[in-house]
């Protein structure tokens, strides 16, 4: 028996909006530690890893480890029917072939049950070792989303370079070039407006903007985004999910000729 009750149901709504365009079908894994997902996009260029820790749920019952295959578009359609202030409960029977999403209005005067068929998805699970990064940039998520959006109107790849000057986002296309430099800025009123750059050594990598723009759909989840770079590894773009977890996007670099 699985029963996960999330008072801040809007978090789950936002999580689905963040991943439904990148990944079609995925297995949600439920264990004592939490509710997680790891899936690659269809071209195997990007990977998303989600973790919602059990402590973040008001009620978390997971009798046995369970893996539930779901079509993320259909799941998003059902979660769209939940109000932003609704309590969302995910329920499933062990060995069952459906999952139920229950939405309760804050005043408990409206209760909705949406039942969805589960799918058999044989997904490849990748081992992602903890890594040391050459540079880690923490910045306002809206700022990062704006940069990716603006640059994608000029070119289709972005070179992200971190030097002691700051972090530079560059692109070039048929109409010209664009360079945006963000400097460290910790003298801000609100901590979420800060840009913090930890650089072990300078690094510069090239990525497809199409994927970066897809990742920024997670912007509503968190005021901040963390971008971790290392020249031998995919970039990791991470958005925290309230105090209960995170959504991490991994993107393999491009080799410029």
């Amino acid at each position: 028996m699985l029963e996960l009750r999330l008072v801040q149901g809007s978090l789950l709504k936002k999580v689905l909006e963040s991943v439904k365009d990148l990944v079609n079908d995925a297995n949600f894994d439920c264990s004592a530690t939490g509710f997680s997902l790891q899936a690659m996009d269809s071209s195997h260029v990007a990977l998303v890893a989600l973790l919602l820790r059990s402590e973040g749920f008001e009620h978390y019952r997971c009798d046995r480890n369970l893996s539930m295959g779901m079509n993320l578009n259909n799941m998003a359609k059902m979660l769209k029917c939940a109000g932003n202030d609704d309590i969302v409960t995910i329920k499933a029977d062990d060995g069952g072939d459906t999952v139920t999403f229950m939405f309760e209005s804050p005043t408990q005067d409206k209760i909705a049950d949406f039942e969805m068929k589960l799918m058999d998805i044989d997904s490849e699970h990748l081992g992602i070792p903890e890594a040391e990064f050459q540079a880690i940039v923490r910045m306002p998520s809206a700022e990062f989303a704006r940069i990716c959006k603006d640059l994608s109107s000029i070119g289709d790849t972005v070179v992200i370079s971190v030097t002691k000057e700051g972090v530079k986002f560059s692109t070039r296309g048929d109409i010209g070039t664009a360079n945006i430099v963000c400097r460290q800025n910790t003298t801000v009123d609100k901590p979420e407006d800060a840009t913090v750059i930890e650089m072990q050594e300078p690094v510069s990598l090239t990525f497809a903007l199409r994927y970066m723009n897809s990742f920024t759909k997670a912007t509503p989840l968190s005021n901040q985004v963390t971008i971790s770079l290392s020249s031998e590894l995919p970039v990791v773009v991470e958005y925290k999910v309230a105090e209960m977890g995170y959504i991490r996007f991994y993107l393999a670099p491009k080799l410029e000729e």
Partner: peptide, 14 residues
């Protein structure tokens, strides 16, 4: 332009 690498070139399936 340029060669897009795959994520599976960096992380092995478990």
């Amino acid at each position: 332009r340029g060669v897009q690498l795959n994520i599976t070139e960096f992380y092995r399936s478990t």
